[in-house]
């Protein structure tokens, strides 16, 4: 994270390289660049290529003949549109829920808590990440079940557990990804100089006004930065929805069913390009807010 004075990128002062040392640094960069190229970009490329192949329905063998059939199915069959819209909606709702929950926590951590408490809180926020994703998802499954913890807590108020479904999926995912939202907002708020708060109150603004007119606009890029995590993690998730989602399916499930069950890799690859495209659009939008500098 950049410090508050923003001295620019040159904070790590490297003497202007001579020819030989430049060659050496190129050599040093080759392994990580290969890793990035092969493991990330290469995999994306392979994914895209695979999506242009076909499959023999009977034997499940991949037929390496260029075809756009997968994309045609994807666009013409209505169910995939429905699933895409559902996935994006869930991702958006999870992001909003997390932002609303994370902002007060992060604000307290950054501006109210004592340095000692601050450190403890950071650990507390990170702690859930130490436990396995599956354990947490299954814990939600048993809590949300018939006669589980949530329904027994809600019963006295005449409410009942939402049961398995999209609501349960949203709750579980919002719980799982919350730390990924708190940390960027916390980092963003910590960078705000206290003098801004003083100046705002000197000029007569109350806390609410300060929050709305000073803190929120400055924290906005940090919130967007956090939303990149919550949004993209939700877009790709298929496990939580299998555990608590009841009958519903998201894009991840379609990919999984086509890859794991039907063994239709080409179609799975075509479906997998949807989240990639959605995230590219999202990142392009996020870039305009300056959020990428907050990561």
């Amino acid at each position: 994270m950049a410090s508050s004075q923003r001295p620019g990128r040159g904070i790590l002062v490297i003497p202007r390289p001579g020819r030989r040392s430049r060659d050496r640094s190129v050599l040093l960069l080759i392994p990580p660049m290969l890793w990035l190229g092969v493991a990330y970009l290469g995999a994306l490329g392979a994914l895209f290529i695979t999506s242009l192949w076909g499959q023999n329905d009977f034997t499940g063998a991949i037929e390496r003949i260029w075809t756009l059939d997968n994309f045609r199915d994807l666009f013409t069959i209505e169910v995939y549109r429905t699933i895409t819209v559902r996935t994006i909606t869930i991702a958006a709702v999870v992001t909003i829920v997390d932002a609303v929950l994370a902002f007060p926590i992060a604000l307290y951590m950054a501006k109210v808590a004592s340095p000692r408490l601050q450190r403890l809180l950071v650990i507390a926020v990170l702690m859930p990440l130490w436990a396995s994703y599956l354990v947490k998802a299954y814990a939600w499954r048993s809590m949300l079940s018939e006669g589980g913890l949530i329904s027994s807590i809600a019963a006295p108020f005449g409410l009942e557990s939402p049961g398995y479904g999209l609501v349960a999926t949203t709750i579980t995912l919002a719980y799982l990804w919350l730390p990924f939202m708190i940390l960027p907002i916390y980092a963003g708020l910590e960078r705000l100089p206290d003098s801004l708060f003083e100046a705002s109150s000197d000029l007569g603004a109350r806390s609410a006004m300060t929050l709305r007119r000073v803190v929120l606009p400055m924290a906005f890029p940090a919130i967007v930065a956090g939303s990149i995590f919550t949004f993209s993690l939700t877009m790709g998730d298929y496990i939580a929805v299998r555990i608590v989602g009841g009958t519903s399916q998201l894009l991840g499930n379609v990919v999984y069913d086509n890859q794991g069950a039907a063994n239709n890799l080409p179609f799975a690859a075509a479906v997998a390009t949807i989240p990639v495209v959605v995230m590219l659009v999202y990142l392009a939008a996020a870039r305009r807010t300056g959020a990428l500098d907050n990561l």
């Binding site: 499959q55 069959i77 169910v79 429905t82 039907a262 239709n264």
Partner: peptide, 12 residues
């Protein structure tokens, strides 16, 4: 293949 497609549609 048709059945797999149909099953996805059933689940919606």
């Amino acid at each position: 293949g048709d059945w797999t497609q149909a099953w996805t549609e059933v689940k919606g």
